[in-house]
């Protein structure tokens, strides 16, 4: 479980996160939703320590991340897998080397075992025969899948995804969402997904946090979000004609 307690984050005079508290549960797909610019990416980057919070606490299973030094954080980070908006694969490494990178860095497995692990992870994301391709030779959806494989290579306890399906077609999006959801359940991971895609929310969201103007505005599950009478949530959920029709 990851707990976020009363965090504040400003950039200069721009107060982005205002006293946000939320908890993200193990074995569940926890979603952070909200409009563009509401602070979702900043929140997820605060959770993993890419941004320092101004005040408040981030707690990974009773370990207070905010008060840790670099070394202690490093140990927690080995348990975190993160999927970036643009996949962030290492350009100079091929698919196999990308997925193997965390293993090379943090494990003393023999080479055969590493290759087995890489193939296992690539298999999990339904990628075959791409081991020797470079990121520039992959499609957007494939890149995301390789990035997921890399994120789960070290058996993470926490998986954080920043807009896993931005820039993907609806079918591929659902595929990626389901993949993340399956992996979450299978390995009992605490997964946090940051999205503004209502499809994913309805499809795989076990627990949903709605961020509005830098504040945690609403929390619930994917059934509740369709029937809440919270105005801002409704405005967000039923922003498209399609969703309005579905509601009727």
């Amino acid at each position: 479980m990851i707990e976020v307690k009363n965090i504040h984050k400003s950039f200069g005079s721009n107060h982005v996160l205002k006293d946000v508290s939320a908890s993200f549960e193990q074995g569940k797909v926890n979603m952070i939703i909200g409009q563009s610019g509401s602070g979702k990416t900043v929140l997820i980057k605060c959770i993993v320590g890419l941004h320092e919070v101004d005040s408040g606490h981030i707690v990974f299973d009773d370990r207070d991340f905010t008060s840790m030094d670099y070394k202690q954080r490093k140990n927690v980070r080995k348990e975190i897998g993160m999927l970036f908006q643009g996949a962030a694969l290492f350009d100079s490494l091929n698919v196999e080397e990308n997925v193997m990178f965390p293993l090379n860095m943090f494990s003393d497995m023999p080479r055969e075992a590493k290759i087995d692990r890489v193939n296992f992870c690539l298999d999990k994301v339904n990628l075959e025969n791409v081991n020797k391709l470079f990121p520039s030779e992959l499609s957007g959806g494939m890149k995301k899948r390789v990035a997921i494989a890399r994120a789960i290579a070290l058996n993470p306890k926490y998986l954080l995804c920043d807009e896993p399906n931005s820039g993907l077609d609806p079918r591929t999006s659902i595929l990626i969402d389901n993949l993340i959801s399956e992996i979450t359940k299978e390995f009992n991971i605490t997964t946090v997904i940051n999205t503004h895609d209502m499809n994913s929310v309805v499809e795989v969201g076990d627990k949903i946090a709605f961020i509005f103007r830098g504040q945690l505005w609403w929390e619930g599950n994917h059934l509740e979000i369709l029937n809440t009478d919270n105005k801002e949530v409704n405005d967000f959920v039923y922003a498209t004609e399609l969703m309005k029709k579905i509601k009727k």
Binding site: K45, V48, L50, R73, K74, N75, V76, R77, K78, I80, M82, F84, Q85, G86, A88, L89, F90, D91, F101, P102, M105, F106
Partner: peptide, 12 residues
């Protein structure tokens, strides 16, 4: 392209 962030996240 966030590759440096990706390294930092891994604890590198």
């Amino acid at each position: 392209t966030e590759q440096i962030d990706a390294l930092d996240i891994m604890g590198v």
